[in-house]
Amino acid sequence: MGMLNNRMNLFVIIVGLLLFLLPFIYESRTLLILLTQIFIFAIFAMSYDLLLGYTGIVSFGHAMFFGIGAYSTGIILHRMESTIFTVLLSLLVGILLSLVISILVGFLTLRLKSHFFAMLTLAFASLFLVVAEKWRTLTYGNDGFTFPLPEFLRDRTYFYLVSLTFMIAIYFLLKRFTESPFGKVLVAIRENERRVESLGFHPLYYKVIASVVAGTTASISGSLYVLSLRFVNTSVFTMEMTLDALLMTIIGGVGTLIGPIIGSGLIEFAHHLLTDLASISPIFERWIIFFGILYILTVIFFPLGIVGTIRNRISGKGKKEKYAKKTVAG
């Protein structure tokens, strides 16, 4: 396990370095923009996996926090001068709002059985969507609004590097988090919540803290997302955002952090490809259908996702021996 872990870290660092060098080696604006999107959604998907894969919480309202970050950044940059300082301020405001709201919503909803919880999260996210639609003086409703960026973020290369840095930093922070004693209890809650209680841990607190970490992380990705678009509208609060994160996590591999990153890469890339193909045949515009099919196939054939399946293959040797023993014994 330790060996595998070290190799994994090395792998991540090497790929990270290559990605850092990429804009200086290969100049393609489209590719940079695409990769930037991938990094941003990877952050969002990792935050979702903290709930889904690690703690076993199914939330349909995770877009709520993405949207809070998005609008915090949008509104602040729209109303105030566009400087590095205001960008950082807007990130911080998003994080703080998400912190408060995730604690409140968490204590209200996380006591419930999982399906009631899922429904309630959906309701909360819809509430935010409605507010964003109706509070026109602040949000300009459905149409949304554009806002200026400070000088240096307007450069696509810089923004690419900033997003990459965020993704890698968050990856390592969340890795520490999930491999701490705290993270181990989260996984135990996923496995058997009642048993965790009998061991003397209080699952509710763990679930609330997990949703706080997931919520604030999602908020950061929402902020970065609108920074990349220089525009924000109500789509950031929609169910589709949550479904994207769900899809990325499941395809990449639940219960891992690399999985959501790979999932984000695949989905965003496929998205891009299908948009291009749409000029050939309009059927490709219905990309959601393709993703739906992909989702179903993954759940049926690779329930562990890409990373989980590969990991199983790697540790497969030991397993075969065990099966052999079992057949002998049985």
Partner: peptide, 29 residues
């Protein structure tokens, strides 16, 4: 028990609880 955790991890959780190691979230287990 916790079906998808190893035997070691199952027992370690109990030890962790007994030693009152509940909320540390940064140090590697």
């Amino acid at each position: 028990v916790f079906p998808n955790l190893t035997v070691f991890e199952n027992v370690r959780l109990a030890v962790q609880s007994r030693m009152n190691i509940r909320y540390p979230f940064f140090k590697h287990f």
